[in-house]
Amino acid sequence: MGHTSIEETYCTYRHLVPGSITKAVRILDAALRETAWPALEQRKACRLLVAQQLHRT
């Protein structure tokens, strides 16, 4: 396209696809939630287990 950066391309053509940023944000948010949330819950469960073990000793 001859643009020097993706930002220039975006600024030039963003009006052609209204709502595309909102849709992209939703897609990325859903993907991150699916991958990051289980890991967060697993870390919380692990910390709880360790805390319980420490209180028993």
Rank of each mutant, 00 (worst) to 15 (best):
R33A: 14
G19C: 13
T57G: 05
R33W: 06
W37G: 00
C46A: 09
G2N: 08
K23H: 04
L40G: 01
T35P: 00
Q42E: 09
E7S: 11
R33I: 05
I27Y: 09
P38K: 12
H15N: 10
Y13P: 01
L32A: 13
T22R: 14
C46T: 09
G19E: 12
S5D: 03
A51Q: 10
S20W: 11
T4A: 08
A51P: 00
Q53A: 10
T9V: 15
V50L: 14
I6N: 04
E34A: 13
M1S: 14
T57N: 06
L28V: 15
K23W: 03
L16F: 08
L28I: 11
A45H: 03
R43F: 02
L49A: 14
E7C: 06
Y10M: 01
C11I: 05
E34V: 04
P18H: 13
A45Y: 01
Q53L: 13
T57F: 04
T22W: 06
Q52I: 03
A31W: 07
C46R: 07
T57M: 04
I21C: 14
T22L: 14
Y13T: 07
Q42F: 02
A45E: 08
R43I: 05
V25Q: 09
T12W: 02
L54P: 00
I6A: 07
K44Y: 07
V50W: 06
L28K: 10
I27A: 11
T35K: 13
L32N: 15
V50A: 06
T12A: 11
Q53P: 01
H3W: 05
L40H: 07
Q53G: 02
L40P: 01
R47V: 11
G2F: 05
V25L: 15
A39Q: 06
A31Y: 07
E34N: 03
R26K: 15
G19V: 14
I21E: 09
A45V: 02
A45K: 12
L32K: 12
W37N: 07
V25G: 00
C46N: 05
M1Q: 07
R43C: 02
I6R: 03
Y10K: 02
A39N: 01
A45W: 01
R14P: 00
Y13I: 09
L40K: 07
V50E: 11
P18T: 10
R14F: 03
H55E: 15
V25P: 01
K44I: 13
I6W: 02
H55V: 06
Q42R: 08
M1E: 08
L54Y: 03
L48M: 04
L54N: 06
I6E: 01
P18L: 12
R26E: 14
A51E: 08
T12C: 06
K44D: 04
W37T: 14
E41F: 02
A45D: 07
P38D: 09
